[in-house]
């Protein structure tokens, strides 16, 4: 029985197209990821990496296709997913302490009216220890360094005790020590059969960090186990030659105000 459950794919993306202002920024993405893998999403700027994880989490509307997590629609498994947004996406001048932020990870489970209890604080403290931030519990977030901000976000994600984690560039602007600490942590998470999906920039570390890799450039170039997919040919396909025709058609769709898909 246990085995059967873990056979369910962590993530299934079926024929997904995502458009901004009608212009498709991701075309017909199809992929399936098994559980318990550390997955990297790579591709050039504007390839739609962040868009893909946002669409998967239901933060952006899909123009076509569907997404399933653990074989269920996203809204049925919200409590099992976790998200680490880009560090710059929030205002770090916000009047809050590190603990306040990490406790947010418990909000999804708490529900309306309930305040974080002792048990939640224990979980939060535990997560802070895991990322090496235990001595900063009451530090104001405006006084954190970039690496510490990232660790705080990571602790918040851990506090969710989710099964699948989406992380948008967790290594951006962090020092080498933090990067190493983070990757070790992610490893230990996948060892516990958690699935971790990371938007990543640095190609050199890809083979070393990730079990699976998703190569993206407005369309899916390739995905699969790193050793078989992370090839020169696929890299050229991802970073080389722009598909000008695709861009032109996308612009045309926006200019003409074309519907995304024909109404059936």
């Amino acid at each position: 029985m246990e085995k059967e459950i873990s056979l369910v794919p962590a993530l299934e993306v079926h024929d997904v197209t995502v458009a901004f202002d009608r212009k498709p920024v991701l075309w017909n993405i199809d992929l399936t990821l098994p559980q318990g893998k550390l997955v990297g999403i790579i591709g050039p700027n504007g390839a739609g990496k962040s868009t893909l994880i946002k669409a998967v989490m239901g933060l952006l509307p899909l123009s076509s296709g569907y997404v399933k997590l653990f074989d269920k629609p996203i809204d049925d498994v919200r409590k099992r997913i976790s998200y680490v947004p880009q560090r710059e996406s929030v205002d770090w001048d916000f009047p809050a302490s590190v603990l306040d932020i990490v406790l947010m990870g418990r909000y999804g489970k708490l529900g309306l009216f309930k305040r974080p209890r002792k048990a939640d604080i224990d979980v939060a403290m535990d997560c802070l220890r895991k990322v090496g931030m235990e001595s900063f519990v009451n530090r104001q977030i405006s006084q954190l360094s970039g690496g510490q901000q990232q660790r705080t976000f990571l602790a918040r994600a851990l506090a969710q005790q989710a099964d699948i984690y989406f992380m948008d560039e967790p290594f951006a602007g962090v020092d080498a020590a933090t990067e190493k600490a983070i990757i070790n942590l992610l490893r230990s998470m996948t060892d516990q059969k958690k699935t971790v999906i990371v938007v990543h920039h640095d190609l050199q570390s890809v083979p070393q960090y990730f079990d699976y890799v998703i190569m993206l450039n407005t369309r899916l170039v390739a995905y699969g186990p790193t050793e078989s997919v992370f090839t020169q040919e696929n890299l050229t396909g991802t970073y080389g030659g722009k598909l000008t025709l695709l861009t032109d058609v996308g612009d045309l769709i926006r200019r003409e105000g074309f519907p995304n898909r024909e109404a059936k």
């Binding site: 946002k54 989490m57 239901g58 933060l59 809204d75 919200r78 409590k79 997913i81 976790s82 998200y83 947004p85 996406s89 929030v90 205002d91 916000f94 809050a96 306040d100 932020i101 947010m104 909000y107 999804g108 708490l110 309306l112 009216f113 309930k114 305040r115 974080p116 918040r156 969710q160 989406f166």
Partner: peptide, 22 residues
């Protein structure tokens, strides 16, 4: 007071709030 948690979270990090279903 009753909805401090929700107001706090949606103010600080709307994307995260949406991701966890708030």
């Amino acid at each position: 007071i009753a909805f401090y948690k929700e107001l706090f979270l949606t103010t600080f990090d709307p994307a995260f709030a949406n991701a966890i279903g708030i």
